[in-house]
C-alpha cells in the first residue's frame, strides 16, 4: 500500500513548482535546480491558477498549454521568452529515415533520461527486412496527434494537449483506466504495471509535472517530447541530442525551424524537399511527427515486426 501513496498529494504541479521558494520543504526540486522564475512571473502564475480553477473541463486542456511550457522552465539556462503561446510555437518532430541506421541511441537516451524500465520504451526503433534481406529502421514515439484519440477517451481528462501542440499526461490525475492505450494507434503509451515504479529520475527528484512526470505505479506514461527542455534550454530532447546521425529533428511549425543538434533547417522546405509523410495519415489523427522516407522503406507499418 505504501507504493500507492508514493504519488503524494496533488500540487497542481505546473503551477506550484514555480511558486514554492527554493529550499522550502515542499519543494520537490531541492536546492539543486534553479527555477529561474521571477516574482513577476509568480504573480502571473498565481492569477492563472485562479483562472484555471474557474475554467472547468475545457479550460484545463486549453489553459494547461499556456501554463505548461511557460511556467515550467526548470533548467537554469532558461532564456526568458515573453508570452509564449500557441501563436508563438507549435512543436513537431521530423525523423529523417535516410539517416537512421538502427543504433537505437535515441532509445537508450530516452530510457536513461526518464528512468524507464527496459520494457517501457517511449522511443522505440522498429526494424524489418525487405525481400533482399536488407534491414530498415523506423524510430517511433508519440506522434503528438493534433486530433489525439487518447485525449478524447480519457475519462478524467488526465491527458491534455498544450497550446503548443504537445500531448501530456498528468500523472496525478490518471486513474489507470488505460482507455488511452486502447485508443492510441501508434502503441505509444505504456503502463506502470509493477511496483516499485522506477525512481532514478533526472533531475532528481523528478519535479513530477506533465512535462517531466514521475513514474507512479498504476498510471500511464508516454513520450513527453522532453517538453521541459524546449525551447528555452541548451539541451534538445534526449533522443535528438543522442542521435549521432542527426536523424531526429525537433521543430517548430510557427517559426518554421527544425534542428537535429547538428544542423538547422527551414522546416517547410525540408519537409517539402524530403517528401515528408506522416504515419497512419488515414486515421485522421493529424500527427505532428513527419517522416522523411529513404532507403526504400515503406512507411505504412512493417509487415513483420522484429522489435
Amino acid at each position: 500500500m505504501t507504493s500507492l501513496s508514493g504519488s503524494g498529494k496533488r500540487h497542481g504541479p505546473r503551477v506550484d513548482l514555480g511558486l514554492t521558494p527554493v529550499g522550502a520543504e515542499a519543494n520537490p526540486l531541492g536546492a539543486e535546480v534553479n527555477l529561474g522564475i521571477t516574482p513577476a512571473g509568480e504573480e502571473l502564475d498565481m492569477s492563472r491558477r485562479k483562472l484555471l480553477r474557474g475554467l472547468g473541463l475545457a479550460g484545463v486542456a486549453a489553459a494547461g498549454g499556456a501554463l505548461g511550457l511557460v511556467a515550467y522552465r526548470d533548467e537554469a539556462q532558461a532564456a526568458p521568452v515573453e508570452g509564449a503561446s500557441g501563436q508563438d510555437h507549435q512543436w513537431c518532430r521530423v525523423v529523417d529515415l535516410r539517416a537512421c541506421k538502427g543504433e537505437r541511441k535515441c532509445v537508450s537516451a530516452c530510457q536513461e533520461r526518464h528512468g524507464l524500465p527496459p520494457e517501457q520504451t517511449w522511443m522505440r526503433t522498429l526494424s524489418w527486412h525487405d525481400e533482399t534481406g536488407e534491414e530498415f529502421f523506423m524510430p517511433v514515439m508519440c506522434q503528438m496527434c493534433q486530433n489525439p484519440p487518447c485525449l478524447n477517451v480519457c475519462p478524467v481528462s488526465a491527458t491534455t494537449k498544450t497550446e503548443q501542440g504537445v500531448i501530456l499526461v498528468d500523472q496525478d490525475l490518471c486513474i489507470g483506466s488505460r482507455a488511452c492505450m486502447a485508443a492510441c494507434p501508434y502503441e505509444a503509451r505504456y503502463f506502470n504495471w509493477n511496483a516499485p515504479a522506477p525512481t532514478n529520475r533526472m533531475p532528481e527528484p523528478s519535479p513530477n509535472t506533465p512535462e517531466f512526470p514521475t513514474n507512479q505505479i498504476g498510471t500511464v506514461g508516454k513520450c513527453v517530447l522532453c517538453a521541459d527542455r524546449i525551447p528555452y534550454s541548451n539541451d534538445l530532447p534526449a533522443c535528438v541530442e543522442a542521435c549521432p546521425r542527426g536523424a531526429h529533428f525537433i521543430g517548430d511549425l510557427v517559426t518554421d525551424i527544425a534542428v537535429n543538434g547538428q544542423s538547422t533547417v527551414k522546416l517547410s522546405t525540408f519537409l517539402r524537399e524530403g517528401n515528408a509523410v506522416r504515419f497512419k495519415e488515414e486515421l485522421g489523427t493529424n500527427p505532428r511527427c513527419y517522416y522523411i522516407p529513404g532507403n526504400g522503406q515503406t512507411v505504412g507499418g512493417p509487415l513483420e515486426g522484429v522489435q
Binding site: 473541463l57 478524447n152 477517451v153 480519457c154 475519462p155 478524467v156 490518471c174 486513474i175 489507470g176 482507455a179
Partner: peptide
C-alpha cells in the same frame, strides 16, 4: 483500474467525451 484510489476523479475531472 490502476489507481482505484482516484476513482473520484471520474466526477471531479470528468471528461464527457469519454465513453468510459
Amino acid at each position: 483500474l490502476g489507481r482505484p484510489d482516484r476513482l473520484i476523479n471520474m466526477v471531479l475531472h470528468a471528461n464527457t467525451a469519454s465513453p468510459v
